[in-house]
């Protein structure tokens, strides 16, 4: 097995087999909270992926010098630095998005996925694999986030608006606003997980 195929496997693992949201059930909070618009989903997914990839790279490259007892604070400082970069860049270049995402940007620090990957993967694996792992986990996160926000925005408002342009419109009908309200997040996610469970049970039989 050469280097490249294993890298690809690391990537695929995060996307499907060990999808952080649907299978491991960690880091759900942000997904439920900001999936009211596809635009939010894109920015949040990209921010989390950025932090995941870079914190994985840094931690994997300095892992030999990290003393075991204080590794968690070190991880958190590394992660917090990258979150600060995201925080300031979004604030500077996309103020309306920053306004909507609000406290969720600083909360990426405590997003369990990122710490879990740092502790569970990047701390024990070489840089290249950690990079692919971060990319895969980030992609898995972003995909679920996008699915959630597409369902919710489409059903809740009847259209999808991306950067002030209407992309898809369901035509004139009265959309059930519950989907973009709070209960809609829980309902949509419950149905997605139930669907996945059903699919798995079918497969077993």
């Amino acid at each position: 097995m050469n280097e490249e195929t294993t890298g690809w496997q690391e990537f695929k693992k995060g996307l499907i087999l060990e999808n952080p949201l649907m299978v491991l059930m960690v880091g759900l909070c942000a997904v439920l909270a900001i999936s009211t618009r596809v635009e939010n989903g894109i920015f949040m997914g990209l921010s989390a992926t950025f932090v995941l990839v870079f914190s994985n790279i840094i931690i994997a490259s300095i892992r030999k010098w990290i003393p075991d007892q204080i590794r968690i604070p070190i991880f958190i400082v590394v992660i917090a630095s990258f979150v600060t970069i995201v925080d300031l860049s979004l604030k500077a270049y996309f103020p309306p998005v920053y306004e909507r995402l609000g406290v969720w940007i600083p909360l990426i620090v405590v997003n369990c996925i990122i710490l879990a990957r740092a502790e569970g993967y990047a701390y024990r694996n070489p840089v290249w694999h950690s990079f692919m792992d971060g990319l895969g986990m980030g992609a898995g996160y972003t995909v679920v986030l996008l699915v959630m926000s597409i369902i919710r925005e489409l059903l809740g408002t009847g259209q999808i608006v991306l950067f002030d342009k209407t992309i898809i419109s369901l035509g004139p009908f009265n959309p059930p606003a519950i989907f973009i309200l709070f209960p809609g997040a829980f309902l949509t996610f419950a149905c997605l997980v139930a669907l996945l469970n059903r699919y798995k049970m079918r497969k077993k039989k």
Partner: peptide, 14 residues
Amino acid sequence: HAFRGTPLAFIIAA
């Protein structure tokens, strides 16, 4: 069956 566990918990939360 498909709703047992976490999905049910999310429905309650909704």
